[in-house]
């Protein structure tokens, strides 16, 4: 066991865990932040996506010991009341079916848009293909991302 002071959503949180513990389980089991989901445990599905210093990473395969001073952002850190433009776009396009993968999808999309505010379809495919949606909401995810990216729809959606 070892103590870690983690920067999560702008707040420092201390945990005392085994150094090999993935951030996913630190968040879910130790900090009761369950928005980040367990899907595969081997960085294949993207359900556990969080940001480490602004980049999308799979928290199931990120040991707490390597986070160091890095800033972690989780779905809870976007906004608690769904006011972040991406969250609004997701609601506007009524993207979710079961919803389990969506926090990971949203975190991947947010990282994409931060680094590439006007992504092409190919950019979106490349950035989002690490996130599986078993319900098949890919078209709406793409539309939601484009609506945030598009200057023509400042409110984050059409319709």
């Amino acid at each position: 066991m070892a103590k870690y002071n983690l920067k999560i959503n702008g707040k420092t949180q201390q945990v005392d865990v085994d150094p090999s513990t993935p951030m996913l389980w630190v968040l879910r089991d130790h900090l009761n932040m369950v928005g980040t989901k367990f899907g595969c445990g081997m960085a294949q599905c993207g359900a556990c996506t969080v940001h480490l210093d602004g980049n999308a990473v799979r928290s199931c395969s990120l040991p707490v010991s390597v986070v160091g001073k890095g800033a972690i952002t989780t779905i809870e850190g976007l906004s608690a009341d769904a006011t972040h433009p991406i969250q609004k776009a997701w609601l506007e396009h009524d993207v979710a079916q079961c919803g389990y993968c969506q926090s990971g999808q949203i975190m991947s999309a947010t990282a994409l848009l931060k680094n590439n505010p006007k992504p092409t379809d190919a950019d979106i495919d490349a950035a989002m293909s690490g996130n599986i949606c078993r319900c098949g909401t890919y078209l709406r995810i793409k539309e939601a991302i484009k609506s945030v990216a598009s200057p023509l729809t400042p409110n984050g959606g059409k319709k």
């Binding site: 980040t36 779905i75 906004s79 009341d81 769904a82 609601l91 979710a96 919803g99 969506q102």
Partner: peptide, 9 residues
């Protein structure tokens, strides 16, 4: 339940 989904509740 959309709001809960996108805010990770």
């Amino acid at each position: 339940e959309g709001v809960k989904v996108v805010t990770g509740k």
